[in-house]
Structures are given as structure tokens and as C-alpha cells.
Design a protein around this nucleic acid. Structure first.
Length: 561
RNA sequence: GCUCUCGUAGCUCAACGGAUCGAGCAGGGCUCUUCUAAGGCCUUGAUGGGGGUUCGAUUCCCUCCGAGAGCACCA
């Protein structure tokens, strides 16, 4: 495989400096160069000289190599050595197929979304779904074989509560099935309200779950109906979010029920599981123990997650498993990973991709407001109708069908980008006004840029357009070229902290450059065919790049907006 | 009380230990006979306090102040 510019530069710098840890970095300002190295600082320290002097000597050495063919080298007074890639080299680099094989077909399981049937699906699941899906896309792009794992919470005491509530207040579970998500939500809320006055309800819930666990026929039927109705409802939501639910490997916690007893036996035999205060636990260093079985004999989420991990490792043998789950569960995963280590399951790298809560405009938790839960469906509907108003206002001459199509794409784009542009580990403020502000650093801004570029391209007949090798683009174009070269690095960097804000920012920067480009440089009216074609080709690359990047974030591009 | 995540502009967010701490929104001022003004240009404005390590600290270490999350029978 062809080496990237960065890798080549690194080899030259390592060769000239003798420092194997030499790094190539991207300067903060394009004016400083396309790439830079700070290796002079390391050398200066070793030799007791000034960084700028060492950098000067290093530059001479570097110019004695083939590096001079691909870049101009300059030393900054600060001691950085900057590389300005030559235009033809930039051209070559941006035309390279960006699909690289970093993953080499290694398997990665990305667990995300993971709604819970017995608990309301709320806005927190949205973050997991958006982040997880985009992360899975990026890994796939980088050559990994990705398994999209949706671990449905369909078992546990919560379900007993739901059944108890249904029996108590609906009497006939088919009422619930008419609008499963809404009705289950209502039951959940009502159950917890009533619980305050009537603590006996807790026991009823436990009793119903126990019955379910031991195979009570009535409860089993209710459970099965709720489960399949919920899954169908989830599919509709995924569809609205532009997520292909066919790609999911859907597993429920219930699937592991038969596996729990033998697993517990195994843990006991290995001396890992011990009795404590009537419960069965695994003791861990520097953290509270992991609970496998309650005093009443029922298993827990931890037990089922261990069983699921065993399944994933045995049947998929993945190089990595990413759990895209909220911050609140950090301890759970630390415990899970510690248990896995004790079991000797160390062939797979486990990581918890944490994300913060969704807060309301007041900076307070949005998930529950006055005991009521913000349903995901409502969020999607509200943002779509707000987007429709904007579309009608901004683009008057559209058919109703196009208006709806664009409004939907813009709404989902605003929603997803608003989340992904931010580093996942912090809480996210859910500000309707800011999200629907379609200007500035937003998904719709990037979609707008794409649509403008696509419009120019379609008027020019969609190319390709012939240019000679000497045809150079303008200064504005040069800035864009330098940006484009970084795409691959940006994608790779998304996988080290498992965060996508770098990609989002890249797409925004590229869009801003593109907007300035067609603001300052006319394309279609350019009389010089050479120049015109060079500009068209550049625009084509940018448009393709935006489409590709937005696609990874799960955002649709539109030819007209 | 212990553990974890944080504290950057009026607000929401960026910044592998690197260059003059970047954006968007809000505020002020320009810009549509010209490929979509959901655009472009100019402008005001910030690292919670105190130590330390380093050639260099928003980033690493210590401490104080402040916010959030978690801490065995929920998931």
C-alpha cells in the first residue's frame, strides 16, 4: 500500500535526526505549512543547544534527501521545521483512494443504542445510537469488519414491574400493544408514581419477574408480545434516524438466561464467585464487588453482561469490543472488564465509550422532567416540524414532497451534528434554539455547502474535466487542497479516543474553506478553460469528501437545499 | 466520606505537552444587477485560585474552590 505523506515525512525526519520517536504534526495555521515536526526540541535538549539552531542544522540534512522533491522546508524561529508540500504532490495525495486498510479485516464489535423495553426509551439512547453508529461507520471505513451489536434490555426486575403495572391498570395487555412505546412509558411513569404511596408494588414487580423467570405461561406471553411490539417500534425510530436496523445483530438479555447457571457454576469452580451476605459476588481490587446473584436468587445485569461477553468472544473472536454506553455506567464496565481479566479473557481489547447526559436548556437533566420522560419520538417530530418552517421560509419554490424530504434530512442532520461535534465525554446541552439555528457550525451548514457545490457541478455536466498537469488552482484552492490531505489522519484519530468531534470539525473547516472559495472565485464564468476545469475538479473532490464524511456521521447529503 | 468526569469569551463548545488558546451563537459594522445571503467580510471578548515538573502547560503532578455522575442486591 502506498504510504501517506505523513508517514513519508516521518521516515525522512527519523532518518535525519536519528530520533525514532520523531513526530509529524499538523501546524495550527495553514500559513505555517502543511506539516511540521518538533523533533528539534528533543535534539536541542540532548545536545544542550538552542532549538532554532538545531532545527537549522536538521533542515540542511533533510534537504540532502529526496524530501526536497516533495516539499519546501522552512525553519521557524520557534524551532519548528515546517514542510510545504509541492502542488503536484498534494494533487497526487488527494486523488489517492482514501480507503485504507488500517483494520486489516480485524473484527470490532460496537455495542450501541441498546434500548430497554421495560424502561422508557429516552433521549439518552439517542446519544448512544448516534455516536455508536458513526463510530461503527468510521471503523468500517478504515478496514475493520464491524459487528453492530444492539443489546436489548428485555429481562430483569424492571420487566416484572411492567407486567405488574399492565395487569393492574390495563387488565388486558393488548391495550398496551396499540401504541407500545407510549403505553409502556405511561405504565412506567405511573408505576413509579404509585410506588411512593404504596411500597408493596416493588414486591409485586419482583414476584412477576420471578414468575417470568420460572416459565409462567401468562407472563411469558405478555413478555413476548411486549418485546416484539417494542422491537417493531424501535425499527421505526431507527428508520427515521436514518439508521439501517437490518445491520444490527440484535441480542436480548433474555437470550443469555439459559447460559447463566452454568456460567455461575464455572465462576464458582474457579473460585472467583463467592457467597457474601446471602448474595453471590466476585471480589475485585480497588472497587466494589460485582454482583452475580441477589439474595432472592435472581440474576443481575452484570451476570447477563458477562454471559454476553463470553458469547461475543467465543463466537466472534473480535480484536476489540466497544461499549457505547452512558457515563453513569462507568463502574459497571470497570467491574465487567475486571471480571473478564480474572477469567483470562484477554485476547479482546475492551473499551467503554462513555458519553455524558443530555441536559435541558436550563442545564438540568432532561431525561426526567417532573417525573415525566422526554420521549425520543417527540424530539424527532418536533425538530422536524421546526426544520420544515425554516425550509419553507428559505426555499420558496419547492414542491411539498421536496420540502418534507429536505426538512427531514436537515432536522436529522442538525440533531446528529449537534451531538457529534462535541467531545462525547461531557454532558450535552439540548438547546432547541441553538440546534435549529442552521447557520454557523452546524450540520445544515455543511449540507448547504454540499448543495452549492453539487449545483455548480451539475451545471458543468458532472465531469471529469480535462486539465494539464501544470494547471494550478488559486490561493483559495490551495488552502482547500492542504485541508483535504488531512482527511485520512482525521479518521484514524477518531479511533484512538473513540470520539468523532475531530471529523465533525474537519468537515466544518472544509465547508468554510469551500464557501470562501466560491465566494471569491467564479467557476462557471471563468473564460480560461484550463483554470475552469482545474476549479471544477477541485470542487468535485471537495463535494465527494463532504459526502463521504457526512455519510460516516450518518448525515445525508442533498443536491438541493 | 470514597471513586470518576469536568471547570476556557456573556452563552454552547475546540485545542496528541507545542507556535499568536481556536470556532459558533449573542452584540457592533459592512455585503445580494454575478454559480442558493442557510453565504461572505470586519469587529468586541476567555484558560476558577495557588504551587510544582518542563525549553514550552488549557493539557501532566499536588492543593484549594466550584459543578455533575457513581459507590453490592436497578440497568
Amino acid at each position: 500500500m502506498a504510504k501517506t505523506v505523513k508517514q513519508l515525512l516521518q521516515e525522512y525526519v527519523v532518518g535525519a535526526s536519528g530520533i525514532s520517536t520523531a513526530e509529524i504534526i499538523i501546524p495550527p495555521d495553514l500559513k505555517l505549512g502543511d506539516y511540521a515536526t518538533n523533533v528539534a526540541f528533543i535534539l536541542a535538549k540532548q545536545e544542550g543547544k538552542k532549538p532554532a539552531d538545531v532545527a537549522g542544522e536538521l533542515k540542511e540534512k533533510l534537504l540532502g534527501t529526496d524530501l526536497a522533491k516533495m516539499a519546501d522546508v522552512e525553519v521557524a524561529p520557534t524551532g519548528f521545521i515546517n514542510f510545504f508540500l509541492k502542488t503536484e504532490f498534494l494533487d497526487e495525495e488527494i486523488k489517492k483512494d482514501k480507503k485504507i486498510d488500517l483494520g486489516q479485516g480485524k473484527k470490532v464489535i460496537v455495542e450501541y443504542s441498546s434500548p430497554n423495553i421495560a424502561k422508557p426509551i429516552h433521549i439518552g439512547h439517542l446519544r448512544s445510537t448516534i455516536i455508536g453508529d458513526a463510530l461503527a461507520n468510521v471503523y468500517e471505513k478504515l478496514g475493520y469488519e464491524v459487528v453492530r451489536w444492539n443489546f436489548i434490555g428485555d429481562w430483569g426486575t424492571q420487566f416484572g414491574k411492567l407486567i405488574a403495572a399492565d395487569k393492574k391498570w390495563h387488565g388486558n395487555f393488548s391495550d398496551t400493544l396499540k401504541d407500545p412505546i407510549q403505553e409502556m412509558l405511561r405504565l412506567y411513569v405511573k408505576f413509579h408514581e404509585e410506588l411512593k404511596n404504596n411500597p408493596e408494588l416493588e414486591k409485586e414487580g419482583q414476584k412477576e419477574f420471578k414468575k417470568l423467570e420460572t416459565g409462567d405461561e401468562e407472563n411469558l406471553i405478555i413478555w413476548k408480545s411486549f418485546r416484539s411490539a417494542s422491537l417493531a417500534a424501535f425499527r421505526i425510530i431507527f428508520n427515521k434516524l436514518g439508521i439501517d436496523s437490518e445491520k444490527f445483530v440484535i441480542k436480548g438479555e433474555s437470550d443469555y438466561e439459559p447460559r447463566l447457571k452454568p456460567l455461575i457454576e464455572e465462576l464458582k469452580n474457579k473460585g472467583l464467585a463467592i457467597e457474601s451476605e446471602g448474595a453471590l459476588i466476585v471480589e475485585l481490587e480497588n472497587m466494589p464487588p460485582a454482583l452475580l446473584r441477589k439474595t432472592d436468587g435472581a440474576t443481575l445485569y452484570m451476570t447477563r453482561d458477562i454471559a454476553s461477553l463470553e458469547d461475543r468472544i467465543q463466537n466472534y473472536n473480535p480484536a476489540k469490543i466497544l461499549y457505547v454506553v452512558a457515563n453513569q455506567q462507568a463502574l459497571h464496565f470497570e467491574q465487567l472488564f475486571a471480571v473478564a481479566k480474572k477469567l483470562g479473557w484477554d485476547s479482546t481489547e475492551l473499551s467503554h465509550v462513555k458519553f455524558g447526559m443530555v441536559l435541558g436548556e436550563d442545564g438540568k437533566k432532561l431525561a426526567t422532567r417532573e417525573g415525566k420522560v422526554v420521549a425520543l419520538q417527540e424530539v424527532i417530530d418536533r425538530i422536524t416540524s421546526l426544520a420544515l418552517e425554516t425550509v419553507k421560509q428559505k426555499s420558496a419554490d419547492l414542491s411539498e414532497e421536496d420540502e418534507n424530504k429536505i426538512a427531514h434530512a436537515v432536522a436529522i442532520s442538525a440533531l446528529k451534528y449537534n451531538d457529534l461535534k462535541q467531545h462525547p465525554h461531557t454532558d450535552i446541552q439540548f438547546d432547541w434554539k441553538a440546534m435549529l439555528d442552521l447557520s454557523g457550525n452546524s450540520g445544515p451548514y455543511i449540507q448547504y455547502t454540499y448543495a452549492r457545490l453539487a449545483n455548480i457541478l451539475s451545471k458543468a455536466g458532472n465531469g471529469p474535466w480535462e486539465t494539464s498537469a501544470s494547471a494550478s488552482v488559486d490561493l483559495e484552492g490551495k488552502l482547500i487542497e492542504r485541508k483535504l490531505v488531512n482527511y485520512l489522519d482525521v479518521l484514524i484519530e477518531c479511533t484512538t479516543p473513540n470520539a468523532l468531534n475531530g471529523l465533525a470539525l474537519y468537515l466544518y473547516d472544509l465547508s468554510a474553506l469551500a464557501n470562501r472559495f466560491y465566494e471569491n472565485v467564479r467557476v462557471l464564468d471563468e473564460p480560461d478553460t484550463e483554470k475552469k476545469n482545474a476549479r471544477l475538479n477541485l470542487i468535485k473532490v471537495v463535494a465527494d469528501n463532504l459526502k463521504d464524511g457526512l455519510g460516516l456521521l450518518g448525515i445525508q447529503t442533498l443536491e438541493r437545499i
